[in-house]
Nucleic acid binder design. Sequence first.
DNA 1: ACTGAAAAGATCCCTTT
DNA 2: AAAGGGATCTTTTCAGT
Lengths: 147, 147
Amino acid sequence: MEETDRSIVAALSADGRMSYTDLAEKVGLSVSAVHQRVRRLEQRGVITGYAAKVNFEEIGLPLTALVAIRPFDPAQPDDAPEKLAHLPQIDSCYSVAGEDFYLLLVRVASPSDLEKLLQEIRTSANVTTRTTVVLSTPYEQRPPSVS
Amino acid sequence: MEETDRSIVAALSADGRMSYTDLAEKVGLSVSAVHQRVRRLEQRGVITGYAAKVNFEEIGLPLTALVAIRPFDPAQPDDAPEKLAHLPQIDSCYSVAGEDFYLLLVRVASPSDLEKLLQEIRTSANVTTRTTVVLSTPYEQRPPSVS
DNA sequence: ACTGAAAAGATCCCTTT
DNA sequence: AAAGGGATCTTTTCAGT
């Protein structure tokens, strides 16, 4: 990827609602040129969407946890991500190297909701779980270093 | 938090660039009422910002890893997050319960960049590291279930 | 690919209910 | 708290380079 596109991606990663006017000034192009480039970045799948960043404590999801999962029966077909996709408490699903198969980042309202979620995860995907509770989040989802 | 604010947060989590016109229609309020509510959500720190979602492979950061860290000397003051904040490869930092002290989500261009980053993490914060490489990401940063 | 300009649309502030 | 109105700014498209 090229220099101007990189600075566009960097700027929109830091402020996803920045206007094309401001973006144009920032990257040193006309508004219509920047607009065209952003559209291309979206079409090429470099920019896949835009999201508000929220304070999860404030929206009633103060408990974050990392759930490592392993199939109960390693001989079974492994389609845990699809089987778990319907659970809205799951923020992210990573397929990982190492002893575990997947790592899930989950957000819930309370320990008892975490307990229910873990049961749902185990029965939905026929897996065992090992859960690490997040105590605090010094920082999260920082804009990438697109340099 | 109240019903209308919740649907505003849900809508902007799913599409952070949605116009106030569309948002107003979605939540059944006038444009000015929605605008006022969004500003209040921002001021109260419920919405903390907006970000473009990017395809990290496309922007030259195809390697994601989870790095568990522990102080080399547990008697030393523990300020690893601040000591590591300057490293732009670190996307997120979670303080966790369990054997490890912090979990970092990092994104780099290559295995050799991961190696360099791990060295920097160890020397910057005087910690040991245990790294789990992400092989693929079935899904990530899904909008929260604000219901 | 970029620019400039013009029309359409959105934002933002202020007043009223 | 919400709605309406209107000035201002932004988005979007298009002709020209």
